[in-house]
Amino acid sequence: MTIVELITVIFLVVGCFFFLAGTLGVLRFPDLFSRLHALTKADNLGLGFIAAGMALHIASPWAALKILLIWLFTLLASSSTCYLIAHFQKEQDQLKNRKEGE
């Protein structure tokens, strides 16, 4: 096993660990906001580690660039979706509170 393979395996294992943590958070956390937090933060970090591991494994600059782009697009999409869902939920909560206040 070369040093590059070892680093690849370490990256993949760390990435899987973060995915596991994120999934556990989705299953265990009580409300929508903390679940969103777990899903977007931990999973994106996990995906980043797995992408880095795969880029090392493929060892071709063009493929590595494509993998980096995939990771960046996923980051952008998931963070903006997270914001939209959280924003919607906040508006719904405010509407509910106002109705209860009346």
Binding site: F73, A77, S80, L84, H87
Partner: peptide, 15 residues
């Protein structure tokens, strides 16, 4: 109305 949604859509269209 959401500015972020508009920007994200405008960014993703050419991509």
């Amino acid at each position: 109305q959401d500015p972020l949604l508009r920007q994200v859509i405008l960014f993703f269209t050419p991509v």
